[in-house]
């Protein structure tokens, strides 16, 4: 039996009020199962960011239900959502978005610390992740000393640090060249399989889809297979 890490049922997101409303998501249905790596494609303005923010518990939907790791996020307040994201969701952002004043290892230790992991446990896990992603030698470097690809690898490690149920990646290859971008996506796919988790990657780059289990297109507010 496969378990669903993310379920979205009839999700609608409408911006604006009164006479000028814009429905960016329109009764969208979506499910991601354990071990699955799904890519969501769409041109600029199609609503990819809105989709990712809604699925990632950053933006509440106008209508519909969202379950992450079997738990509904509908009734949670802002503080509960923050806590929920900390433990259940990993994020990868465009340009990695590492904190400039933390060394590579500290980027990971910080998220473990706010999740109240013990320091010996978090040291072990960060060493494990950094070694596997091939940036262990860079652990005492600041982000400014890393290449774009290395930064995204740290971002992958940081996103997995707290053992989230699902990872959301917002155009992780946008600032990388083709070769580095492919490497990063491959690593992301490997991690999903190895950790037995799930990931959703939003991108507009059609060349990055080689390792994805499914590819969906965001069109008119819903996700379509093509």
């Amino acid at each position: 039996m496969t378990t669903a890490k993310l379920v979205m049922k009839q999700v609608t997101k409408t911006y604006g009020d009164g006479d000028s409303t814009l429905s960016v998501l329109n009764k969208l249905d979506f499910q991601v199962n354990e071990g699955e790596f799904v890519a969501v494609l769409g041109p600029s303005g199609s609503g990819k960011s809105t989709f990712l923010s809604t699925a990632g518990a950053l933006l509440s939907p106008t209508n519909g239900e969202i379950l992450i790791d079997g738990e509904s996020i509908a009734d949670k307040n802002k503080a509960e959502l923050t806590e929920f994201r900390l433990h259940k969701i990993g994020f990868m952002f465009q340009n990695a978005q590492l904190l400039p004043y933390l060394k590579v290892e500290e980027q990971l230790l910080f998220v473990a610390k706010i999740a109240k992991l013990s320091s010996s446990e978090s040291k072990k896990r960060s060493a494990y992740l950094l070694k596997r992603l091939g940036i262990w030698e860079r652990r005492n470097h600041y982000p400014e000393k890393l290449s774009g690809g290395e930064k995204q690898r740290v971002a992958i490690a940081r996103a997995w640090m707290n053992n989230p149920a699902i990872l959301f990646a917002d155009e992780p290859t946008a600032s990388l060249d083709f070769k580095r971008g492919k490497e990063v996506v491959q690593m992301l796919a490997d991690e999903v399989k190895r950790e037995g988790k799930a990931a959703v990657m939003v991108t507009h780059d059609e060349r990055m889809l080689e390792w994805c289990d499914r590819v969906l297109y965001l069109q008119d507010g819903i996700l379509l297979e093509r």
């Binding site: 990632g56 950053l58 503080a79 923050t82 806590e83 929920f84 994201r85 900390l86 433990h87 969701i89 994020f91 952002f93 978005q97 904190l99 400039p100 998220v111 706010i114 999740a115 940081r158």
Partner: peptide, 16 residues
């Protein structure tokens, strides 16, 4: 500002 946004998205409390 954007760093704070990132931190909050990752689950850092505002009080922290």
């Amino acid at each position: 500002t954007s760093q704070f946004g990132i931190l909050k998205a990752m689950g850092t409390k505002t009080s922290y």
